[in-house]
Design a binder for these strands. Structure first.
Length: 933
RNA sequence: GCGGGGUUAAUUUAAUGGUAAAAUAGUGUUUUGAUAAAGCACAGUUAUAGGUUCGAUUCCUGUACCCCGUACCA
């Protein structure tokens, strides 16, 4: 007789190889047809909500691995919250306005399109990009409302952005002011940072003397008495002579040592470390001696004469003054430089800019009116020479900002802009900075250091300049007075009327609006503002425009001042971006943060920790990973990596990940195949009647569920979850429980108690395991779930986590069996020794003689005759002893043809002469009895 | 330059002021009833230099390298 047919070798439709790249798209098709997202919404209706609000990627360009990582992390959270019993909707979004799209349209169609046509092209372009990115996101298995995502260019959203601006205006945070911007004379326009390139250019470098208003006072600071016929000059160095008409101060470094240098003519002041250099340049000085030095801080507020205007300028202090070049004293023209502007604001200097849009000085500029600024360099130098203020002139070549179109030098110009003030008291009496600081305190950060980062950024940031001079953006829908520049007194009302128009027609409604269409507002003396909003304002207000307007994203029981969103999750660069813009608008509109929790992940780098770049050739594209390994592999990589730092990816790393995947997948396959003939509704063994080892296995998996589902998912520590689950599959299941179980599953009677007990445990284990895996291995878990439930329409996400039946003596079983496992590893070591010695091959060839001490003996004895199954040998003899030890003997018995144990009772049954008594019972009787293992 | 973060076996990750651990890879081996699989055994690690300490991978300081953000080059 061929006993192989009497052994319960099961099969399953769940294949060993995932073949994910090929099969995932088929699963996606099915899920889409089933409308799984919508179905989950129905199932979850009425539960407590968990809102993860999507930060919108920019609607331009191919998806890269960073996008993929971000979306996968979000999806893991959405799925884990769903399984944990929340209603967790996910509305993906896109950021649609802004310069990069404008530039693409310009590149494609030139600069001469009609504005409306131009904006339409931008809109079409953005939609095309969104469709591409969307299909990639869907391919990752990201579950969400893809048919109805939010776009910042949706008319309703555009209207919402205008309304958000209105709220901030009403709350008193918006004001107009001036700010330096990059300006290209050839374009006649401000440039964005992205449009600036740096080239080596030649500039005149001049040293200019500023005469002290009161030289004796300056000398006194140095502790020196000045001869009556001498004066003191502070010397500055500059490469932009044309900015001297706008000079309003001289800037010194407070910690830098400055020297008073006596020469045969007058006295000069320069940084001590630069005296020699300077004197070398000033060749007309034959004999110069530093006679005293003081710190820059001492010089503050001393006054000097402008070199050619009738103007006194102060000495001020600034961090940007250094003593490694020039004279250590910095010519300060607040109208023409960022540092100069900032320090100018601090000291209350005149910020007035004497240069017009055309790059020529305005008509009131003495000496230079109407002159182009670069032409003025030579004239300034000439005038300085006449006034005897020029100490030296040379030419230098240095890196200088240029327009990326014209490749010509750009200038800094202060221009009128709109700001959201950080330190301006709002109508509620608090400044935005105060409110934001408080809101940061109230926010939970994952990981914790995010707090310090956001805090320092909000603490240091200047006012937010929200106006842009662009076409593809949401307009600032204000009317300002022709003469005074004041906003119309009914601005709030006008804005709401305009918002309603935008809701219907989009932003063109504003650009094409003429004042006489709003007769009720008396706009005769007002002009329409042409500025658009910074795109960071668009995305920063999505808590208002999207979360605030979509019913599924709103919680019914929100307390006053409670953030509307549970979690924002983005890369660490967003501390300066979306996290911050959302925080500021949240505080400016509502007085509180829009989010309760902030989660940050690092950037993706290669296997050597280098950032990915074309030149290094180390870019890993998500599309490649998916087509080679499948989305679940990418998801497993994301989950297995500690995202709080950088995320490394490389071929080797992916190979290791796919090995982990294979381990998990094969474990699932073993589980499924061994419960293939098991029906929980008919075949289940009552918990109290189960074999002890099986009850232990249930206690173990329940404990693991607590760790994974209750401890780790809520704090988003997915890499620890992967460790736990891979370890579980390898050690606890593969290395112990399933290994031990094989004998019982295969050789005991198919529907006997012993096997059904094991299958009852395996069923619960599989269900619990798939639940824990499901947020990460979205495809694989549901693929297995369909097999397990014998229902191809079901999904893990249609349920909450499986509740494993409670085990009364769980704690003591866990302790007992972990001790038995410890001793088992000693047994295995002894067996291995005999194996290398050539005495045995399979462990069933061995018998054990165990001597156990008083602690161990009762444990082993309590397992009774089942102990040999736990240790997978053919026979065990147990003795109590002083100390514990194991002796391995080669069995002298005959091998049972069916169960491969070496037994003395083979041949005891005439009909079955080659099998043991246990097998005879399993083949012909009611099946063997097991109680413990 | 400044602010924030990081560096544990070949790879991904643990842990602790007191012998540094797991998985995967590697080597050897067993089984051929998880077989493009599984079991077992073996081997291998705290970036670097100091400091505090009886004892430091852990706490502190410096250095190197890497990542994110930001400034400047008048």
């Amino acid at each position: 007789m061929d006993y192989k047919n009497t052994v319960n070798l099961q099969d399953t439709s769940f294949p060993m190889r995932g073949d994910l790249a090929k099969r995932e798209p088929q699963m996606l098709d099915k899920w889409t047809k089933q409308q799984r997202y919508q179905k989950i919404r129905q199932i979850c209706a009425g539960r407590d909500k968990f809102i993860l609000h999507d930060g919108p990627p920019y609607a331009n360009g191919q998806l890269h691995i960073g996008h993929a990582t971000n979306k996968v992390l979000k999806d893991i959270i959405i799925r884990s919250k769903t399984l944990a019993g929340f209603d967790a909707p996910y509305v993906p979004g896109w950021d649609c306005h802004g310069l990069p799209i404008e530039l693409n349209i310009e590149k494609q169609f030139g600069k001469n399109l009609e504005p409306r046509d131009f904006r339409n092209k931008c809109r079409e372009y953005a939609n095309g990009q969104i469709e591409q990115q969307k299909s990639d996101f869907i391919r990752l298995g990201v579950l969400g409302d893809w048919d109805n995502p939010y776009k910042t260019m949706n008319f309703a959203t555009e209207a919402g952005i205008v309304r958000a601006l209105g709220e901030i205006y009403k709350n008193g945070y918006l004001f107009s002011g001036v700010k330096p911007v990059y300006w290209c004379i050839d374009c006649g326009s401000a440039l964005a940072e992205a449009e600036v390139e740096y080239y080596d250019k030649q500039s005149p470098a001049i040293d200019v003397a500023f005469k002290a208003v009161d030289s004796q006072a300056v000398a006194a600071k140095f502790g020196v008495t000045l001869p009556a016929d001498k004066s003191i000059y502070a010397v500055i160095w500059t490469t932009t002579p044309w900015t001297l008409p706008a000079n309003q101060a001289i800037c010194a470094g407070s910690e830098i040592e400055y020297a008073l240098v006596a020469t045969e003519c007058d006295y000069i002041v320069v940084a001590k470390n630069l005296v020699e250099d300077a004197l070398q340049r000033y060749s007309f000085i034959k004999d110069g001696q530093a006679i005293a030095t003081i710190k820059g801080a001492e010089l503050e507020h001393l006054r000097f004469e402008h070199p050619f205007y009738n103007r006194q300028v102060p000495m001020i202090l600034g961090e940007h003054a250094t003593d490694d070049a020039g004279t250590g004293l910095v010519h300060t023209a607040p109208a023409h430089g960022m540092d100069d502007y900032l320090v100018g604001v601090k000291y209350g200097l005149d910020l007035h800019n004497p240069v017009g849009n055309d790059g020529c000085y305005i008509s009131t500029t003495e000496y230079f009116a109407g002159m182009n600024v670069f032409d003025a360099n030579a004239e300034v130098i000439k005038l300085l020479t006449e006034r005897q203020r020029l100490m030296n002139k040379t030419d230098i070549t240095h890196s200088y900002p240029c327009c990326w179109r014209h490749k010509t030098k750009i200038i800094f110009r202060t221009t009128g802009q709109w700001f959201i003030g950080m330190d301006k008291q709002g109508n509620g009496g608090k400044t935005l900075r105060e409110q934001a600081n408080k809101a940061v305190d109230d926010t939970a950060f994952f990981p914790a250091w995010g707090r310090a980062r956001l805090e320092s950024m909000i603490g240091n940031r200047p006012d937010w300049c929200v106006s842009r001079q662009r076409q593809w953006g949401v307009p600032m829908t204000f009317f300002v007075h022709k003469e005074t520049g004041e906003l119309h007194p009914q601005s709030a009302e006008i804005l709401e009327v305009v918002a309603q128009k935008i809701e219907v027609e989009g932003i063109d409604a504003w650009f094409e609006l003429s004042a006489d269409q709003l007769p009720e507002f008396n706009l005769a003396d007002y002009v329409k503002l042409k500025d658009t909003l910074d795109v960071w304002f668009d995305s920063g207000t999505t808590h208002f425009t999207v979360v605030g307007t979509r019913p599924e994203l709103q919680k019914s029981n929100l307390a006053a001042g409670e953030p509307a969103v549970d979690l924002y999750l983005e890369g660490s660069d967003q501390h300066r971006g979306w996290f911050q813009s959302s925080m500021l608008t949240g505080c400016a509109v509502n007085g509180n943060a829009p989010y309760k929790q902030l989660l940050t992940h690092g950037f993706v780098v290669d296997g050597n920790g280098r950032k990915m770049s074309k030149s290094l050739g180390n870019i890993v594209a998500p599309q490649q990973v998916i087509s080679k390994y499948g989305a679940d592999m990418l998801r497993l990589w994301v989950a297995a990596t500690d995202y709080s730092g950088e995320l490394s990816i490389s071929d080797e790393i992916l190979k290791r990940v796919s090995e982990s995947y294979r381990r998990i997948r094969n474990t699932i396959r073993f589980l499924l195949s061994n419960i293939n003939d098991f029906d929980i509704t008919k075949d289940a063994v009552a918990i109290d009647e189960m074999v002890e080892l099986d009850r232990y296995a249930l206690a173990y998996v329940a404990q693991l569920q607590t760790r994974v589902n209750d401890e780790l998912y809520p704090i988003y520590q997915f890499h620890l979850i992967v460790q736990e689950l891979v370890g579980y599959c390898s050690e606890e299941l593969g290395g112990f429980y399933l290994d031990v179980l094989k004998d019982r599953l295969y050789t005991s009677k198919a529907d006997g108690h012993a096997r059904r007990s094991a299958q009852t445990a395996l069923y619960h284990i599989t269900k619990a395991l798939l639940g824990m895996l499901s947020p990460i291995l979205a495809f694989t878990a549901d693929e297995a779930w369909e097999v397990l439930e014998r229902n191809s329409d079901d999904s893990t996400l249609f349920h909450t986590h499986h509740v494993v039946p409670a085990i009364n003596d769980a704690d003591s079983l866990l302790v007992k069996w972990s001790r038995l496992q410890e001793f088992r590893s000693l047994v295995l070591k002894e067996l291995e020794e005999k194996r290398t010695g050539g005495l045995i091959g399979a462990s069933l060839q061995a018998e054990l003689v165990i001597h156990a001490d008083s602690e161990l003996y009762p444990l082993l004895a309590s397992i009774g005759a089942d102990l040999k199954f736990a240790y997978m040998v053919s026979k065990i003899t147990l003795h109590q002893a002083e100390s514990s030890s194991v002796e391995v003997k080669v069995s002298g018995a005959v091998k049972c043809e069916r169960c491969w144990h070496y037994q003395d009772d083979i041949g005891g049954n005439e009909e079955h002469p080659t099998i043991c008594g246990r097998c005879v019972e399993n083949v012909t009787g009611v099946g063997e009895q097991r109680s413990y293992a």
